[in-house]
């Protein structure tokens, strides 16, 4: 008999096919991902042993307490897990896993795309074209900012931060970083470590965010942080919207303190602050840092592999904690 699974989020056809082949699966049919109530109902009716979900499912202590006792493993199809109350899950004895490692390159690519497009005004130019481009642009008008040879500060130097640093080096950028602990030299690859985030900011022509969300980093990039950056700096965020004080960011973008920003994540998704949509100097994308077919498949397969391991009595591949 196949193990019983609730596939609570919409995913690629290949991931759904593999879930159905390997599991007795109840699959979300849309139009959206399952809510907590729907997951609880489906897991109870199905006596599910596993739940595969993503960051659209807020697994609070109450939500976890409401799950049936049959559930032994929950796999989030994401690297971030700020939507999960980890101590509550741990207390319940449920194993929770994520999908690190498989989306680093894709997400780092997206961050560099946003950095280039924000610095070189790519989207503002594309709008000019789509409106017909019927005027001459002066030699001194609508100029962007050069990327090559500049300094980029990276907040959070995990796998994605390091993959981003590798791309920045292709543009001869000087890489600075802040993280809770300094990396060993073989992972630093010459990047300069700042133990104090605020001490790094005056040196950041560009700042790219790759730190986890959650209370510890909430609004870490605030009005004070922007005031410490050089005039005309560029912010890129493909990590979590919660790291940024969006009022302060809007101020910095309209005052000219920041030249531009590239944002893939927002405090409220998808109902993000529409004041950003009125600005010409932001590049916006709908949380698609990992949105390549290859990567989305790899994330789903990895989550299924984690579930299969736990239900077969083996250790999880990517547990959020180790006992």
């Amino acid at each position: 008999m196949k193990p019983r699974l609730v596939l609570a989020c919409l995913t690629t056809t290949d991931v759904v096919a593999r879930a159905r082949a390997a599991f007795d699966a109840v699959v979300a049919e849309g139009p959206g991902d399952m809510t907590v109530a729907e997951v609880t109902q489906a897991a109870t009716d199905h006596q599910a042993e596993a739940i595969l979900f993503t960051n659209t499912l807020p697994l609070s202590a109450a939500a976890i307490a409401g799950l049936p006792a049959s559930v032994r493993v929950g796999a989030t199809c994401s690297v971030g897990y700020d939507h999960i109350d980890v101590p509550a899950a741990r207390a319940c004895g449920i194993v929770v896993t994520n999908t690190p490692g498989v989306l680093d390159e894709c997400t780092a690519d997206h961050a560099m795309m946003l950095l280039l497009t924000a610095a070189r005004r790519g989207m503002a130019y594309d709008r000019i074209m789509r409106q017909g481009w019927r005027y001459r642009i002066g030699q001194g008008d609508l100029l962007g900012v050069r990327v090559t040879g500049k300094r980029v500060g990276i907040l959070g130097m995990g796998r994605i931060g390091r993959a981003f640093a590798q791309r920045a080096r292709g543009f001869d950028m000087k890489v600075l970083y802040h993280a809770r602990t300094r990396l060993p030299p073989e992972l630093e690859q010459g990047a300069e470590y700042f133990a104090d985030f605020h001490a790094m900011l005056p040196h950041c022509d560009f700042l790219s965010v790759h730190a986890p969300g959650g209370p510890a980093t909430d609004k870490m990039i605030d009005a004070r942080a922007f005031s410490l950056m050089p005039d005309g700096a560029v912010l890129v965020n493909v990590a979590r919207g919660s790291l940024v004080d969006e009022d302060a960011l809007l101020d910095a973008l309209t005052s000219g303190k920041l030249f531009a920003a590239g944002l893939d994540v927002f405090r409220d998704e998808p109902d993000y602050d529409l004041r950003f949509a009125a600005l010409d100097n932001v590049v916006l994308s709908p949380h698609v840092g990992s949105a390549s077919k290859e990567t989305r498949d790899a994330m789903g397969f990895r989550a299924l592999d984690n579930i299969a391991a736990v239900l077969a009595g083996r250790p999880a591949i990517d547990p959020l904690w180790r006992d």
Partner: peptide, 26 residues
């Protein structure tokens, strides 16, 4: 990475959230 399509979706205010094959790029 389909930057233009993503931009137009977000700026339109009609972004409904994540979907399985939404804007999957190369």
């Amino acid at each position: 990475r389909r930057a233009g399509e993503g931009e137009r979706l977000v700026r339109s205010g009609k972004w409904q959230g994540w979907a399985p094959t939404q804007l999957l790029g190369t």
